[in-house]
């Protein structure tokens, strides 16, 4: 391997890790919801992309920065709706019914997007396109860097929210022991709902960032984002937010690395094998949930 190959390799690794912050955000959303409900919300990535689509409505009238805020807000609203429809109305002891209802929601959201946009990809406003930061021979795409930095800010905000506020305390309490939390006077429905809204904020942001990094929004984004988000959740360790962040960056980096080494059509095989390696050798993920918790 000569110097140029090594450069290309490092470059694709850097791009991948920066893009991985999107996977990290989606992974955090899955992990948060799994933490409080012990259930998967398969419609999460679709709702995130849908939030980004809705935020496009204000793009003609507002500066691009506001589009991201709008996407986050719409994501929160969609999160609340998904909770009410797919989780709140179904009996708690039927996990399979909830799984299926979120699949129904995933298909509904996907098809609603296709129906409204007639299946055409929509351009998404990116920030700082073309302005690259050069570090020696390597360059950092500043739009990806913005996505990365924004993602980090959101993750820091989330950590503060969970650790420093009463709402965060309630969320952590319900995820550890719902019955005890209820006995201490916390509303389980309220906490679950606010967790879905917070996860929705993250998802909307992630959807907007994916749109900005790729340049277009397309309904074809939802399934890969769902799969990658689930992979990140498992590699990071169920319920672990730092795990999801690190796993997101690792998956993003590994994906681009394999794309450079083996081509785009084989890329995901190796990402999935990476996941298998984790499941076999470290089934709990990077940060396994504490054992023996009910």
């Amino acid at each position: 391997m000569n110097y140029n190959n090594l450069l290309d390799l490092s470059q694709s690794l850097i791009d991948g890790v920066l893009f991985g912050s999107i996977y990290a955000l989606i992974g955090i959303g899955f992990t948060l919801i799994f933490g409080v409900m012990n259930k998967i919300n398969l419609s999460y990535a679709a709702a995130s992309v849908a939030a980004a689509y809705v935020s496009l409505l204000i793009v003609q009238t507002a500066p691009p920065a506001l589009v991201y805020v709008a996407a986050a807000l719409v994501g929160g609203v969609l999160g609340a709706l998904v909770y009410l429809i797919c989780f709140h109305l179904l009996p708690l002891n039927k996990p399979l019914a909830t799984l299926m209802s979120t699949v129904g929601m995933l298909l509904l959201i996907d098809e609603a997007i296709v129906h409204i946009t007639a299946g055409m990809p929509q351009n998404y406003p990116a920030m700082f396109v073309g302005a690259n930061i050069d570090i020696g021979p390597l360059s950092l795409r500043s739009d990806l860097l913005f996505v990365f930095g924004f993602g980090c800010l959101v993750m820091i905000g989330l950590t503060l929210l969970l650790k420093r506020t009463r709402l965060g305390l309630a969320t952590r309490a319900v995820s550890q022991q719902p019955v005890a939390a209820q006995l201490c006077g916390m509303s389980i429905t309220g906490t679950n709902m606010s967790t879905f809204v917070i996860a929705g904020f993250l998802g909307g942001t992630a959807g907007a960032m994916a749109g900005a990094a790729i340049g277009v929004l397309s309904p074809l984004l939802t399934l890969p984002l769902t799969v990658k988000g689930l992979v990140v959740t498992v590699i990071g360790g169920l319920g672990s937010i730092p795990g999801a962040i690190i796993a997101g960056l690792v998956v993003g980096g590994a994906e681009n690395l394999f794309q450079y080494l083996r081509g785009v059509s084989e890329r995901d095989i190796y990402v999935m094998l990476l996941l298998f390696a984790f499941l076999v050798f470290r089934p709990g993920g990077l940060f396994p949930p504490p054992a023996g918790r009910d």
Partner: peptide, 16 residues
């Protein structure tokens, strides 16, 4: 295709 997801959802809500 729009109804598709909605009807799956509806069946699950009515008959878990």
């Amino acid at each position: 295709s729009l109804l598709f997801g909605a009807l799956i959802l509806l069946v699950m809500l009515l008959r878990p």
